[in-house]
Design a protein around this nucleic acid. Sequence first.
DNA 1: TTTGACCTTAGACTTAACTCCAAGGTTTAT
DNA 2: ATAAACCTTGGAGTTAAGTCTAAGGTCAAA
Lengths: 133, 133
Amino acid sequence: MYRIGELATACEVTADTLRFYEKNGLLSPSSRSDKGYRLYTDEDARHLKFILRAKAMGFSLTEISELLNIEASRSDWACADVKGMVEAKAAELQRKIDEMTRLRDSLQELADACCGGPESAIHCSILDTLETK
Amino acid sequence: MYRIGELATACEVTADTLRFYEKNGLLSPSSRSDKGYRLYTDEDARHLKFILRAKAMGFSLTEISELLNIEASRSDWACADVKGMVEAKAAELQRKIDEMTRLRDSLQELADACCGGPESAIHCSILDTLETK
DNA sequence: TTTGACCTTAGACTTAACTCCAAGGTTTAT
DNA sequence: ATAAACCTTGGAGTTAAGTCTAAGGTCAAA
């Protein structure tokens, strides 16, 4: 059994984060000490690691909730459900990547057209472009 | 002279957004009517378009404030200053793109390893991976 | 003249995922 | 015995960029 600070340190999060996860239904300690201290089991710790791994993959806490639901009753779900979530997330990331790539290219074009010298910016092509495209 | 609703419609933002920009020092109308209505000039409209273009390039409102300062006194700045901001922003985007690409690849790897079939998820490789990496 | 569209302000609310604080109780080490 | 380190709760604050509401004033058209 781990107290909140112990689990937090072990998993490199803060105790506040663990309380936050509990409040949001992601992870509750299996029990409490007689004085009300949260007591986490190894199973709880695995649970937390699941959450942190999913977070590292880019899932939101809401999505992680769904994943935890599925994980908790795997037999109620099909592989296709899980794969669908993962692919939807990958597609969402791809859309963001595409958008950011477009922005980056625009910025690079802007920068490339600029002399970038120590002269005054009175005739700066970047500002000109922003002013009147 | 445009009233707030007119300028908003013309530039496809809301009147609330214009008031918000004013409160945050990005764009103030050149004058007010005798009854206190905001009155924007063509110059104000160009100002707003500058803001919207910079926003479309991925700049935050804080960064746009800086750009507007530079724009307002171009001779006080060097081309290198402006180019530096643009390149820094491009680099920041690149870092985000790299990170998201990494995440997307991880997700794709996860998805590719999953049968994705209609069978129960009891032996789902995705859940297994999240549970014990 | 009265309805509807427009404008004003101050200030609260939104989202996500924490983070911090106050006021107090518990445990551990010296 | 006492101080440090830990724990509890409830609730407020953070960030970005708006968005919405209330309560009221103004203006144009029928």
